[in-house]
Design a protein around this nucleic acid. Structure first.
Length: 311
DNA sequence: TTGTGTTTTACGACCTCC
DNA sequence: GGAGGTCGTAAAACACAA
């Protein structure tokens, strides 16, 4: 039994157990070509960023030019030596800092061992009969320059370590927009979607620049991610947009996650102090640090804060 | 293969700020 | 009143041990 089938079964069983009614099928209502994005190494580096979180970004600040013109944005804050290995996927926005090379820098640390190796042949073939063929009417083969790495459409497993570790078709198991997304309720079709690795990666990157996001960046991210997805994915009649609200919610959830992690760390300081020496600044509700638009001041994320937006 | 624990989306309640 | 914050929680998706 394939993982997808198993997931379906498990889901149905568990949902019935919990709710007494058939599970709302969200997953696998379509199968797309997300492996291209997968090959970007998205999840791997999202996870890596998460792992590195506090130590990697002790002050996790957005560049001071955040609320200045984005034209002034300088990529890779120099204080993060190991951040330089990371680059935004080009085309994520028009920002210079988001328009760098899209390839994964070899300077990025070695992959984590817990990412299981996989072979390119372990997944279903592209011609898997269980899959839907994708002939998007709105898909344009013309790729905006710099939007995605040129190899995005080439063979899988060449772009990142991730691509060599994960089944290139793993993403197919994950949820996608339901074909009949009429409404979003907890019992209907679209209760929850799983963001693509690419989307999560970009959100994570943004989060590591700043724990709070401006309206402008929110809009840019939402647009860019959706655009990137549409450019990279060839699924039919299903466009998956990250809305402003979704970006907002994602940031809220991400902050909550960070608070939770910080809380956990505070409860076991010895265990972490020996392994991950952190600079003094991270002793604060560390990664809670953020930067408001025009300063580099740190503010605890435990403090509710409203960011004044720039327009 | 299955049961179970964890993580990830999404939402509601409530709050503050403008 | 609207936007966006935290907090708590539901439930889907996922990971993994048995």
């Amino acid at each position: 039994m394939g993982r997808l089938d198993r997931a379906r079964k498990t889901l149905n069983v568990r949902s019935r157990k919990l709710t007494g009614e058939p599970a709302a099928r969200v997953t696998a209502s379509y199968l797309g070509a997300r492996y291209a994005l997968e090959s970007l190494g998205g999840k791997m580096y999202v996870s890596y960023l998460l792992e590195k979180d506090s130590s990697m970004y002790p002050n996790s600040v957005r560049h001071p030019s955040l609320n200045l013109n984005h034209q002034n944005f300088v990529p890779a804050p120099p204080q993060y030596s190991d951040f330089t290995g990371y680059h935004h996927v080009p085309g994520i926005s028009n920002d210079p800092h988001h328009s760098q090379t899209g390839s994964w820098n070899a300077a990025y640390p070695a992959p984590r061992e817990e990412w299981p190796p996989y072979g390119p042949g372990t997944g279903p073939s592209p011609a898997n009969p269980g899959q839907i063929s994708f002939t998007p009417p709105d898909f344009s083969p013309v790729q905006p320059p710099g939007l995605l790495p040129p190899s995005i459409n080439s063979s899988v497993g060449q772009l990142s370590p991730d691509s060599q570790r994960r089944n290139p078709y793993d993403w197919m198991r994950r949820s996608a927009p339901p074909s009949n997304s009429g409404g979003k309720t907890r019992t209907k079709d679209k209760y929850r979607v799983v963001y693509t690795d690419h989307q999560r990666l970009e959100l994570e990157k943004e989060f590591h620049y700043s724990r709070y996001i401006t309206i402008r960046r929110k809009a840019e991210l939402a647009t860019a991610l959706s655009l990137s997805e549409r450019q990279a994915i060839t699924y039919t009649s299903l466009t998956w947009f990250l809305t402003l609200s979704e970006v907002k919610i994602w940031f809220q959830n991400r902050r909550a996650k960070e608070r939770k992690l910080n809380k956990k760390k505070m409860q076991q300081p010895q265990a972490t102090s020996t392994t991950t020496p952190t600079p003094p600044s991270s002793a604060l509700p560390n990664t809670a640090a953020m930067v408001t638009s025009s300063s580099v001041g740190l503010v605890s994320s435990s403090m509710p804060m409203t960011i004044k937006e720039e327009y």
